[in-house]
Design a protein around this nucleic acid. Structure first.
Length: 502
RNA sequence: GAGGGCGUAGCUCAGUCGGUAGAGCAGCGGCCUUUUAAGCCGUUUGUCGUGGGUUCGAGUCCCACCGCCCUCACCA
């Protein structure tokens, strides 16, 4: 019998002993529990003297045993609930026949306690138990009480252990919920409605990414897990739902990193009769409300950076930034080519074919734009530490975006950056079905199949019925949470990040 | 996909030059009615990630594989 089985065996034996005493080791409903924090707050208003147990002031708490100090005829147990920790005092004199059950408690068990409030000589608020309830006998010992669970792999694989043994982790996910709720409230306050569109799509689109493929048995068709809800949300604009948003789980069959998880959450929103400048206000506004709900601090420490989320955020033209950091004009095809070459930028496909030479040789507008974007990423992104809106992108990169009235090679698109990381992406939406059809037919990036340019006839049909001009925005919720909770990895803001099964 | 790092008891970690596998916590037995990671005495626990190789001898050196982390690439 290995160690783990032995622990389990011992704890099961204790559960049997509890049953023999008439105590259900998996007790049921335990109503009217007061949280640890609430008890502390209430006790603060009572006149409790150290070393004295109150006669009239009682409390009822429940939680997991995180510390257990057995002193023979007296035991102190610290239990942790969703709000904090509180000490429970168990004394042989006060408990009569239930005292034997105390000897059967283990770290990790979940108990409920009824008793009188008191403050110990050392000043610790304590519930002196006259009735003990065993609500759940744990069969495995919790992680080491001082360090908790630190092994990163175990933390992700057994997140439940991580959550109950490392309280700051729970707090991150509480704040995530606060942020998502703030985003919803902000948009609803702006007159949006929340909608849900298909995650299973016969044609994928709306982003440049590789999809997951699945299969529906009864229909006997292959389906894709959505890489984006964009094309469905725009159909809703056609349908007259003028302000819609979706909190969308998207799936992209691509690499995993500290900033990428194969499934991730975006809030995507579309607003009829608006444009990308309105979307700038939207991303700033939803972020500001989220911060207000968290702690109100617009200046925040993220990693080793001091960020200022005060609105409005810095706004810079894409071309201006390229000029500033790469010292090249985005229209200067030869200059961009030389700069790219100088930077050692090249692109390879899965077969390690060098696409750089091919693209450069063709000299087409698309390939020039791809190079421009590579140079931008290599030179500019790292400088975009403070919240920054970069606008007016090379049109060839943006098949779903309205073109500037002045320049057909400029798309009315912005991306919001924080800490050198893309946080959001927005367009003045293209509503000209003829141009849209041409863009989809052309494909976007040379040598890439996984584009947003898959022909979607029904989407095009919807545009032909007429879509109002609109602004659209997508914000990476996971990344927003990373920023606002100061977590270095996207896995720290996703409860169950993808791990290779073992 | 490429490069680097890590993997030792349930948990947190030591392990020197290649020479019998260690500590703390947890567990088990005992003492203890005001502890705060309680303390004291005693004590159990190992596929050293897996599989090969070198060697008289491998946790330690070499190779392959598995898993995780980091950087890069793809991407948001």
């Amino acid at each position: 019998m290995d160690r783990e089985e032995q622990f389990k065996h011992e704890r099961l034996a204790k559960a049997d002993k509890l049953r023999a005493m008439g105590i259900d080791p998996y007790g049921g409903r335990f109503a009217d529990v007061e949280s640890a924090v609430a008890i502390r707050t209430r006790a603060g208003g009572l006149n409790l003297s150290p070393g004295v147990i109150s006669e009239g002031d009682r409390a009822r708490a429940a939680g997991r045993i995180v510390l257990l100090r057995d002193m023979g005829k007296l035991a102190f147990v610290t239990v942790r609930d969703g709000t904090g920790e509180i000490q429970i005092g168990l004394s042989k004199n006060a408990m009569s026949e239930q005292w034997d059950a105390v000897k059967l408690l283990d770290l990790g068990d979940i108990i409920g306690a009824d008793g009188r409030l008191g403050v110990t000589k050392t000043g610790e608020l304590t519930i002196w138990v006259d009735r003990l309830h065993v609500l759940c006998k744990a069969l495995h010992p919790p992680p080491e009480k001082w360090h908790g669970l630190t092994d990163v792999e175990l933390r992700y694989r057994h997140r439940y252990v991580d959550l109950f043994s490392n309280p700051p982790v729970r707090d991150v996910f509480r704040r995530r919920s606060t942020i998502v709720q703030a985003v919803r409230d902000y948009l609803i306050g702006c007159g949006y409605i929340e909608v849900e569109t298909p995650a299973l799509q016969p044609i994928y689109g709306g982003a440049a990414a590789k999809p997951f493929v699945t299969h529906h048995n009864t229909l006997d068709v292959d389906l894709f897990l959505r890489i984006s809800p964009e094309l469905y949300l725009k159909r809703l604009l056609v349908g007259g739902l003028d302000r819609v948003f979706e909190v969308s789980r998207n799936f992209r069959n691509e690499g995993i990193s500290t900033r990428h998880n194969p499934e991730f959450t975006m809030v995507e929103l579309y607003e009829a009769y608006a444009d990308y400048e309105v979307m700038m206000e939207r991303i700033e506004g939803m972020t500001a409300l989220a911060i207000e709900r968290l702690d109100g601090k617009m200046r925040r420490t993220v990693g080793d950076k001091e960020l200022d989320f005060s609105t409005p955020w810095a706004r810079h033209r894409y071309g201006d930034l390229l000029k500033k950091y790469a010292d090249v004009d985005m229209d200067d095809a030869d200059g961009v080519f030389q700069r790219a070459k100088q930077l050692g930028i090249y692109r390879t496909d899965k077969k390690n074919v060098d696409l750089f030479a091919q693209e450069a040789a063709k000299g087409s507008m698309i390939d020039h734009s791809v190079l421009v974007n590579d140079v931008f990423e290599a030179t500019v992104e790292e400088h975009l530490v403070q919240p920054t809106i970069v606008y007016d992108y090379p049109a060839a990169l943006c098949p779903l975006t309205r073109r500037s009235a002045d320049r057909s090679d400029i798309a009315l698109r912005f991306e919001a950056y924080v800490c050198g990381m893309e946080l959001g992406n927005a367009y003045s939406e293209l509503n000209d079905p003829t141009i849209q059809r041409a863009n989809l037919g052309r494909g976007t990036m040379a040598g890439e199949q996984e584009t947003m340019a898959v022909m979607d006839e029904d989407f095009l049909l919807s545009l032909e019925y007429g879509m109002p001009p609109a602004g659209g925005l997508g914000v990476g919720i996971d990344r927003l949470v990373m920023m606002l909770t100061d977590q270095p990895s996207i896995r720290d803001v996703i409860l169950f990040p993808l791990q290779r099964p073992r």
